[in-house]
Simulated scan of single mutants.
Amino acid sequence: MGEEIGNFHGFKVVDIDENGQWIYETVDGERATYDEFGHSFDDKQVLGNGLPNYYAGWNNSVRYKNFDLNITMRGAFDYQLLNFERMYLENPSITNYNRLSSSQDLVFGKERLASPLEYNSYYVEDADFWKIDNITLGYNLPLEKVGAIQSARVYVSTLNTFIFTGYKGIDPEVNRGGLAPGNDGRDKYPTARSFTVGFNVSF
């Protein structure tokens, strides 16, 4: 009661043993092996929050002679995501899906995971990002009036151009609505990068 909306509650892991089993931190700050840990509701801790504390945006418009350049950027900061893709597809007990190549990585740089599928702090990641969302470069053709044509412009544009983030998932922009924000679900289609070439004519 009285907790913040968007908090992740789960088991906090701090290490892995020589058998690939999780080592936990208890609510009292003690270390516990997989068999020693209670795995009950009372053993859960706040692992992060799925609602960003800060948002930022920056739009630039630059003109030089007949050229124009527009750049749209935005970001979100100081929040976490639960990476469901990694939680499922890095776990050796899941056999009805393809595995991520990262499933062969050493957990905490020590051992490969052997524990059963479990939601814990290892899959709650910082998700700060800065995205260059749109870049549009245009050129206004230096035409004298030709018939009814007043002006003409060609342009190239990209959408979802670049993203800077430490998040390991496909895209740190996920649904933040409802009472469970910050859950990066499985099997979603990646956000596409698109390119457009256009021609504007004014009459």
Score class of each variant (00 low, 15 high):
129 F>R: 02
112 R>I: 13
133 D>R: 13
130 W>F: 15
142 P>I: 02
110 K>I: 09
147 G>C: 05
144 E>T: 15
122 Y>A: 12
143 L>P: 14
141 L>P: 13
134 N>I: 13
116 P>W: 02
143 L>E: 07
142 P>S: 06
103 S>M: 05
113 L>A: 04
103 S>L: 00
115 S>F: 06
101 S>E: 10
125 E>R: 02
124 V>F: 10
152 A>N: 01
131 K>P: 05
117 L>D: 02
115 S>C: 02
116 P>H: 10
114 A>C: 09
123 Y>R: 00
106 L>C: 07
122 Y>T: 07
139 Y>I: 12
143 L>A: 05
141 L>N: 06
115 S>G: 10
128 D>Y: 05
115 S>E: 05
148 A>T: 07
120 N>Y: 11
133 D>C: 09
115 S>V: 06
150 Q>R: 15
129 F>G: 13
114 A>E: 14
144 E>A: 11
101 S>F: 03
146 V>H: 11
132 I>F: 04
122 Y>E: 03
148 A>H: 05
107 V>E: 02
112 R>Q: 13
124 V>H: 05
138 G>P: 07
150 Q>T: 13
109 G>M: 01
120 N>W: 04
149 I>R: 05
116 P>K: 07
113 L>I: 09
135 I>A: 06
102 S>F: 01
109 G>Y: 01
132 I>G: 08
149 I>V: 15
116 P>S: 09
119 Y>T: 08
135 I>Y: 05
108 F>H: 08
105 D>R: 13
108 F>Q: 04
125 E>V: 10
129 F>K: 04
113 L>Q: 06
104 Q>L: 10
148 A>N: 04
136 T>M: 08
119 Y>Q: 04
140 N>K: 09
106 L>E: 05
145 K>D: 02
127 A>E: 00
122 Y>N: 07
112 R>V: 10
120 N>I: 11
125 E>C: 08
136 T>Y: 00
101 S>G: 15
104 Q>T: 12
124 V>P: 01
145 K>Y: 05
121 S>Y: 12
143 L>Q: 07
151 S>M: 00
118 E>C: 10
148 A>K: 10
149 I>Y: 14
135 I>F: 11
104 Q>K: 12
123 Y>S: 06
131 K>R: 14
101 S>Q: 11
131 K>V: 07
137 L>T: 11
125 E>L: 02
152 A>W: 01
114 A>K: 15
131 K>I: 09
140 N>A: 14
114 A>Q: 15
141 L>G: 13
121 S>L: 06
115 S>P: 04
144 E>F: 09
103 S>Y: 06
109 G>F: 06
124 V>L: 03
138 G>V: 13
138 G>C: 08
110 K>Y: 04
127 A>V: 08
146 V>Q: 09
131 K>Q: 07
101 S>D: 09
138 G>E: 00
111 E>Q: 15
151 S>W: 07
137 L>V: 15
129 F>W: 03
108 F>D: 04
103 S>I: 01
109 G>S: 08
144 E>M: 02
